Amino acid sequence: MLKGLFKKTKYITVNPDSLNNHKLDKKPVIPDGMWVKCPKCGKIVYKDDMDKNYKICNFCNHHFRLTFKERIKYLADKDSFIEWDKDIKTINPLEFPGYYEKITNIKTKKQMNEAVITGKCSIAGEECVICVMDSSFMMGSMGSVVGEKVTRAIENAIKLRLPVVIFTVSGGARMQEGMYSLMQMAKVSAALGRLDKEGLLYICVLTDPTTGGVTASFAMLGDIILAEPKALIGFAGKRVIEQTINQKLPEDFQTSEFLLEHGFIDKIVPRYDLRKVLSKLIYMHKV
């Protein structure tokens, strides 16, 4: 009597209607940009979760690079940011082949005018002048417009009696502008010298990567120098230095942690604490 209950059927019948008219071999549709692979630990991170976590990997704490819009969104009080010198245009002083076309293409694609944005904002109620570099525009390289915008921002800070906060991320001086680019190191440094004489605070926040002429100038001139965890910070590349001095360098060489240990920076601050730390520092050093 029970034997028939356990009888194995030879074929499985599938009702076509249950497939909702979909093909069996059709691949699931996953929207682009929904998931992000962490370059450090290799784990797949849900983008919305990462955005809520300040673009920090939930598994290994890796800090992804931010655009200037993301940086301001995470840092500044809502609707407090006022941009300055938006319409300063990059020219091609050396008539470097293809430079003008490259700049034009990046402007159109990235919807930004240069590798730095400057202006005024408040951070947890504390007013300051802010400059944010962006690696998505020619790797944050420093050309004449970058130097001019940062210099003007510092000069405005002197007039307004406000502290200056600069977020650095750069591959160094922009080779397409040659000596014009290198001159920005002296120009910005001179402006910071005037800021210092006025007794106004300058905080520099080093992010990944900060290298070349930016490191050799205003990135290391802060009254207080902060850095994000595991950021690459240096002047020349590690391989170039090893070939020059004919020595093997430590694995963590040119990281935030190495620089903190050797006294080059004051503190490593995770991104989720930056807003609180900056507002406290600005409050403590009010003129």
Rank of each mutant, 00 (worst) to 15 (best):
G140H: 00
S141F: 11
V145D: 03
E148W: 03
V150L: 11
E127Y: 11
D134I: 00
N156G: 07
M139N: 12
E126H: 04
K120R: 15
G147H: 03
C128Y: 11
D134G: 06
K159H: 05
R161C: 04
D134Y: 00
G147S: 00
K120L: 11
S135F: 14
N156F: 01
C131D: 12
A153Q: 02
A157Y: 09
K159Q: 13
A153E: 05
K159T: 07
I130Y: 13
I154H: 01
I130K: 10
S136M: 10
A124S: 15
V150G: 00
M138Y: 08
M139I: 08
A153W: 02
V146C: 08
V145G: 05
C131K: 07
E127R: 14
G125S: 10
M138D: 11
S135H: 12
E126V: 01
G119A: 06
S136W: 12
C128K: 08
E126Y: 04
E155W: 01
M138L: 14
V116S: 07
E155C: 01
A124G: 10
E155R: 14
A153N: 08
I117L: 13
V146H: 11
S144V: 09
E148S: 09
G119S: 07
G140R: 00
S141N: 13
M142V: 12
G140P: 05
V146M: 09
K159F: 10
G143L: 02
M133F: 15
D134R: 03
R152Y: 00
K159Y: 08
L160E: 15
S144I: 09
V116E: 07
G147C: 03
V129F: 13
V116A: 13
R161N: 12
K120I: 14
V145Y: 04
A157Q: 02
T151C: 01
F137I: 03
G140E: 04
F137V: 03
N156Q: 07
S136L: 13
L162W: 06
F137L: 03
I158P: 07
E148P: 01
R152C: 02
G143S: 04
C131W: 02
E126Q: 15
